[in-house]
Each structure stands twice: as C-alpha cells, then as structure tokens.
Design a protein around this nucleic acid. Structure first.
Lengths: 109, 109
DNA sequence: CACATTAATGGCGGAATGGCCATACAGGCA
DNA sequence: TGCCTGTATGGCCATTCCGCCATTAATGTG
C-alpha cells in the first residue's frame, strides 16, 4: 500500500472546491440564513436581492459542493443546510476580520 | 445609534473577501505548510510547484486578507501564519469531503 | 384544456482570476 | 562599482466567474 504524500495536490484541489463554493457573499448569506430554517428559492432570491436565476445558480453551486440539500414540494423547492460544520468557519472569518480591524486601528494610532 | 441589520450585505462582502483568499488549492497548501513553521518564498514556490512570481502573488493575496505575515531577513522574505483560527476551517472542509464521499458510496450501492 | 407560478437552464457580455514571462527592485558580496 | 540571488510587479493571455435576460420544465389551478 502506498502512503499518501503529505502535500497531495489532489487533496488540496478537493478542499479548494469546497472553499470556492464558500467564496461569494450571496452564498455566505444563503448559508447563514439556511442555518436557522429551510427556505424556498423565491424567498432566498428576495433575501439576497438578486434575480431568481442567479440565486438558483448559486444554490446549484452549494448543492454540488455538498453544502445544502433540496426538497421539492409541489412547485416550490426548499433548501436546507447539509453541512453541520460551518460554525467553525464563521468563527474563523470573524476572528480574522476582528484581527484585521484591530491592526488597522493600530496603524492609525 | 443605528442597529446593524442582521443581513448586512457589507458584512458578507467582508467575510467573502477572506473566504476568497482561502479558495485556491495552492493557497490552501501554503497555509497548511505555514502552520508548522515560517517558510521563505523560494521554498514555498518549490512546495507548490509554480513560478516564483505566481507564488508571490498568492502570498500577497493571503497577506492582504490578513492570513499571513512576512518578515524580511536580508534578501529573503519569510512568511508566517497570522490567522490562528484555521483549524476549524480545515475540519469543516474535511467533514464536508467525508460526507460527500459517503453519499457517493451510498449511490453506488 | 389554458394559464399562472416556481425553479432550472442556456446564452451572452463584462469582470475577475490565475498562469507565466519579462522586468524592476532590493540586499549581499567581491 | 558590478554581479548574483531572492522577491515583487507589470503585462499579457486564457479561463473562469457572475450578473441578467430569455426560455424551458414542472406543478398547481380554474
């Protein structure tokens, strides 16, 4: 059996595919909203303030990454959060932002 | 004083700027390597297997996002990890990947 | 059946990303 | 001084991303 090299490019490619899905403000907003309840596409479109087709494509990206699931109910499609591990991600982003803000204030002083 | 709306677009823009910096396999590889020690640009270029100028631009992006710091020592520039919160991010990526793999295996069965 | 509603898809144009090459800008050294 | 090394930057090109519009598909309703 062959040991996986520590720096396997394919592993980082796979990670980056997930990270790319997280790298858009509208998608972050969607994930944040879905953390509390399931929401249909039309409501999400209103939430992010973009065209329905645009939001639908964002949702397809999130679904492809395995971050959300969809459930059809008649004409409506409801999306729910599938990844239950995002809290650490949010905390990380906020920590970096807070740190950057602090650094910027230090420069001004 | 005005209360910040829960879904402030600017807040998600700020978060997305950080997330974008994390959304590239070479940058993930760099961050992972820097977690253990400070490394100069030339060694990082060899690690990721890209041109020195390419890696330098990746590092500028990471620095701009506040994820790494640089320290000049003569001609060399050493980069170190500034964000101390990435473990939750790694764990999240791995959890999603594991979940996706499991789902894919379930489909095959 | 026709018609309305909801979501997904195709297409297009503009913007951003990412790669390398060439070059500029140090710093170290003879 | 001149040369070498390590790094950053500008330019260019190919690719990807992202927005809306138009269209299609599917379901519910009269």
């Amino acid at each position: 059996m062959k040991l996986r090299p520590k720096h396997d490019r394919r592993r980082y490619d796979a990670r980056a595919r997930i990270a790319k899905a997280l790298a858009h403000p509208s998608r972050l907003m969607i994930l944040d909203a879905l953390d509390r309840r399931e929401i249909c596409v039309c409501d999400l479109a209103q939430l992010v303030g973009a065209d329905q087709s645009t939001v639908s494509k964002h949702l397809a990206i999130l679904k492809q990454a395995g971050l959300v699931e969809d459930r059809k109910d008649g004409v409506m499609v409801y999306y729910t959060l599938k990844a239950c591990c995002l809290q650490g991600f949010w905390d990380c982003l906020e920590a970096v932002l807070a740190q950057n803000l602090k650094a910027q204030q230090a420069v001004l002083r």
